[in-house]
Amino acid sequence: MHANLFDRYHHTEGPLHRLEARVKVVLTVAFIVSNALLPDGAWTAFGLGWLLVLAANALSLLGLGFTLKRSLIALPFALAAISSIFSTPGNPLSSFPFLGMELIVTDAGLLRFASILVRSWLSVQAAILLVAVTTFPDLIHALEHLRAPKIITTVIAFLYRYLFVLSDEVIRLLRARQARSATLPPSVSPHFPRKWGERKRGVVWRAKVAGNMVGQLFLRSYERSDRIYNAMLARGYQGQIRTLHPHTLTRRDWTIGALTVLLILSLQLIGR
């Protein structure tokens, strides 16, 4: 697989890229928490929150619409929230029967549904921007600095390094499956009647093939972990991972961080 399929970092080198990763993580989480805290229908605050997102987009030199284009990712989940239209107590607007239930649309319900969508839409844009302007290794360092347990950050670092290697293996396995199964239409293969056409097989058989692939992938991964362990031992690993702490907070980081926190707090004031 081409590695860039999993890469989310964009080398535009805007001012936001240079902001320390820790600050960006804290601000992103603060923004998402703030969205969750805003009451339903706080449209002014939501709108200003969006301006904040736009400003961040501009400061990343990615173009104002960068996060907008990618923000629909959470949309399928909105299906789950549709039912909030009927579950929130409020003034009934209309009602209709559904699978033996009487569903009542309320004004508060509609308001809640719209608010959930907006909250989610704003939050996901912040998260998209975070990984677009921060390299993933820096993000891991930020988590270390923010006192996330080292074993978890280390496992995440390994996962990040090897997801590329192992997805390549998966792609090869999938290609091999395709090459074995999909090529012979029944009419041109008189010598292999039925035996070859995967389509003739049931879903259980297909699941079994997939399961065998998973098993194979596990064994390869397990053996790889042995070799990696040896490579670590050979370079002095004794059971404790050590890391350098390459990042320091500058005055610029503090200032921008504090200012943005103030902005986010003022969103709260406006929204209530």
Partner: peptide, 14 residues
């Protein structure tokens, strides 16, 4: 000691 497969030898993100 450098192992044969560089994907085993290089186990860090950067």
């Amino acid at each position: 000691l450098v192992f044969q497969n560089p994907d085993d030898q290089l186990f860090s993100p950067t």
